[in-house]
Amino acid sequence: MENIDGGFAPEKGGAATRSGFSFDRGWLLVIAVVLTITALIVSRPDPFKRIFFFVQDGIWVTISVTVISFLLMLITGLIVALLRLTKSAFIKAVATSYVEIIRGIPLLVQLLFWYFAFPTVIQSIGKALRFSLFENYLANPVAMAVVGLTFCYSAYMSEVYRAGIQSISKGQMEAARSLGMSYVQAMRYVILPQAVRVILPPVGNEFISLLKDSSLISVVAVADMTRRGREFMAANFIPIETWVMVALLYLIMTLVAARVVHWIEIKTRLEK
């Protein structure tokens, strides 16, 4: 199936060459931010270099939690979207309720639930069932943060997918079905490859929101960039420098992410 799989791959020589190598001016802002950070570190190593090295391990925590949660929600969001589009009224109602409930509760409250309340629930169940694995369950902060972010963002992501799938004309599904394809085959080979292109910009936005919202996990014992910033603050009490540095680091990440999304969008664009 090597060839028909190409739905997800950009066309070779088609859209890619048409866009050429025109320079994306958005990168200028990225360069400006990098230069600002460098200038701060070089001109005033104390405190900026110290702050940078102090929050450095937090950078990797922020990036890895964001990327892992994002990859998971790409899958779970699609599943929820497909469940919402089924004919079964019951399944549709369950999936819709999930989305409505999750979107109605602040992410911070959800994260607090997953870290503080969820382990207690598991332990109680373990005690009731005399199941020692559950009884001794302890929450891993990073794992709970990933679960919390994924659980919440899957609801938003499913709405993005749903809009994308519904934006593809009904005739596409009918043409695929009239050729004898099953619903799943039609989705996989005809609808989703087109929908993915439509939803790239909003998916990119979700990634950037997630990256920023991941700062909330600092309250549930995950040593991300924000938490490292707070720790530095507590020890040194130089708020302006600390939070300027942390803000610049977030900014560089979100700006780079936006550029990458933009690049993928151009690469996979379809002529209409």
């Binding site: 060839n3 028909i4 004309s169 596409q172 043409a175 085959q185 292109r197 379809l270 209409k272």
Partner: peptide, 23 residues
């Protein structure tokens, strides 16, 4: 169909071979 409904993300050749191969 009246509106052709070709698959816009696939080349002509792949439009014609897709269902043959998976169905």
């Amino acid at each position: 169909f009246q509106q052709f409904n070709l698959f816009p993300h696939l080349k002509v050749i792949d439009n014609i071979t897709l269902a043959q191969r998976i169905v």
